[in-house]
Design a protein around this nucleic acid. Structure first.
Lengths: 241, 241
DNA sequence: ACCCTACTGACAGTATATGTCAGGAGTGAT
DNA sequence: ATCACTCCTGACATATACTGTCAGTAGGGT
C-alpha cells in the first residue's frame, strides 16, 4: 500500500515467505499448497517454488503427497512486534473476555492489556489506548455458587470435583466429574467434563450446580488426549440448530 | 551458499534484508550503508534501496546523514511473561474476537496467539495449546458490502467516508461521516461516527450501508478527544433496556 | 572549511519471479 | 483397485524487479 518506489514484488515475496511459515506454524494440521495459494493470491506452483526455496535455506518444512506441508516444531524466527490489527484484536478480545468470562478472567484481561502496552513503543501505546472497538454489554452471566477461577484451576491441575447438580427437569443428582473445558455462552456458562456416573462426557450449566467439592484426587488427562477426545465427541454430536 | 535450483538472488535479497536488520540490532552505534554494503557484498545504493523498502514496510529504521542507520526499538517483540489466568484470558479473548470481529481481526487474533506463544518459555507453550476455554459459535455477522478492515483503518487514519445509507425506515441518504468507533454486537455491527449532515454523532449498521467511498480528506480527532466526546454522548443517552 | 554520510535520479543489462500447461508419483479413503 | 487429493518436476514465455555505475544534493559532526 505505502510502497513508494517500486520493490513491490520482492517485498510481496519476502512477505509471502514469511506468511507461509506463519500459516504453517499457526495450523495444527498440515497445510496444502492450494490453501496457501488461495490465501496469498499466487499460483500453486509459486508456492511449491517458495517452499523449495525455504527448504533450501534450511527451514524444516516437510511436504508429503496427499497430505500437505508441515513445519517441524522448534523452528523460530524472531518474533515481530504486534501490528495495529493485532493490537485491536487484543483489546477487543480482552473486552469480550472481560464480559463473558468470570471475575478472574476480567482482571487477567486487564493485566494483559497493561503488559502488552508496556512493551510497545511510545507512539503505539497511545494508539492502543485509543482502540475504538467495543463489545456491547450483555447480560451479566450468573455462575450460581460456582467460583469459576477455582474451576479453571481444577481443569489445569486435573483435579476431580464432586458436584450436586440439578438437571433441566429439576432432578438432583450427585456425581464426580473430571473437568475438561468451559464454554462461555452469552447468557450462561457450560462446564464440560467426563462424568464418572455416566461414563461419558457431559455438560453442566454452572448456575445449576447446587454445591461442589474439589477433591484431592486427580485424573489423568494424558497430555491433552482427554481434551481432544472431548473435542471429537462434541463435533460428532452436533446439534442441527 | 546452499542454494539449489534457481531463486538464488531473491533468497539472497530476502536474507539480505534480514541481515540488515540483524546488523542494526546487534550494533549499539549507528551502522553506515558502507559497512552494510561491505558485509553483504552489494553496492551502497542497493543498501539504500533495501532500507527504503524496509521503511516503507513499516520497519522503524532511522537514517541520518553523517551518522548512519539506527533501528528504533519496537520492531522485535521482547519476551513476555504471563500467568496462566492471563494466558487463558488471551486465548479466550482471541477466540471471541475471531468470532465477533471481521476477517481481518480473526486472522490478527490467530497471529496474536502465535506471537505470544513464540515469546513464552517452553513449558508454558504446551499449556497455552491446552487452554480449554471456548467461545461457542454464533451467527455469522453480515457486513453487507462493507470491508471492515478498511473501515478500521479509516478510524485509525482519521479519514472521512462518504456513505449511502438506508435508515431503518428504508429512507436512503448520502452523508459524509468521521468514523470513530465500531461496536461488535452478536448479530450486527455498528459503526459510530460524527455525521456532517446532522452535525451530531450517529450509529450506522454496517449491513445497511449501501455504498461507500473512502475520501482523501481527513478529520481531526484531536488525539482522542473526539473519541472521548463520543463515549460521553453514548453514556448520557443510554437506553433503559 | 572539510569529511562523512544519507539520499535522489537516470540508464541499461541481467536475472528473477510468475503463470500456464502437462504429467509423474505417493497417500488415504471408498 | 479405483479414485481423489496432493506434492513435485519440467519446459517455455513474459513481464518486471534488481543491481551496478555515474553524477549530484543536502545534512551532520569536527
Amino acid at each position: 500500500m505505502i510502497n513508494f518506489s517500486g520493490q513491490e514484488t520482492l517485498m510481496r515475496k519476502a512477505d509471502r515467505l514469511f506468511e507461509i511459515i506463519e500459516m504453517m506454524r499457526a495450523s495444527d494440521n498440515a497445510v496444502t499448497a492450494a490453501e496457501l495459494s488461495g490465501e496469498l493470491n499466487v499460483s500453486e506452483l509459486t508456492i511449491y517454488r517458495d517452499v523449495r526455496g525455504l527448504q533450501g535455506q534450511g527451514v524444516p518444512i516437510e511436504g508429503e503427497a496427499g497430505i500437505g506441508y508441515v513445519l517441524r516444531p522448534g523452528f523460530h524466527l524472531p518474533p515481530l512486534m504486534f501490528t495495529m490489527d493485532e493490537l485491536e484484536a487484543i483489546v477487543l478480545g480482552a473486552r469480550l473476555a472481560g464480559q463473558r468470562g468470570d471475575d478472574g478472567l476480567e482482571k487477567a484481561a486487564e493485566r494483559v492489556i497493561s503488559k502488552v502496552k508496556s512493551v510497545l513503543p511510545a507512539h503505539m501505546q497511545d494508539r492502543m489506548d485509543r482502540v475504538a472497538l467495543y463489545a456491547p454489554p450483555t447480560y451479566d452471566v450468573g455462575h450460581g455458587i460456582v467460583v469459576m477461577p477455582e474451576i479453571r484451576e481444577c481443569i489445569r491441575a486435573e483435579q476431580k470435583i464432586r458436584i450436586d447438580y440439578k438437571s433441566l427437569a429439576g432432578q438432583p443428582s450427585q456425581r464426580i466429574i473430571w473437568p475438561v473445558a468451559v464454554a462461555f455462552f452469552s447468557g450462561s456458562t457450560l462446564l464440560s467434563a467426563w462424568c464418572e456416573l455416566r461414563n461419558d462426557f457431559g455438560h453442566f450449566r454452572t448456575d445449576r450446580i447446587l454445591n461442589y467439592d474439589i477433591l484431592d484426587e486427580k485424573f489423568n488427562g494424558g497430555s491433552g488426549r482427554l481434551l481432544r477426545a472431548w473435542e471429537q465427541s462434541v463435533s460428532t454430536r452436533k446439534r442441527p440448530s
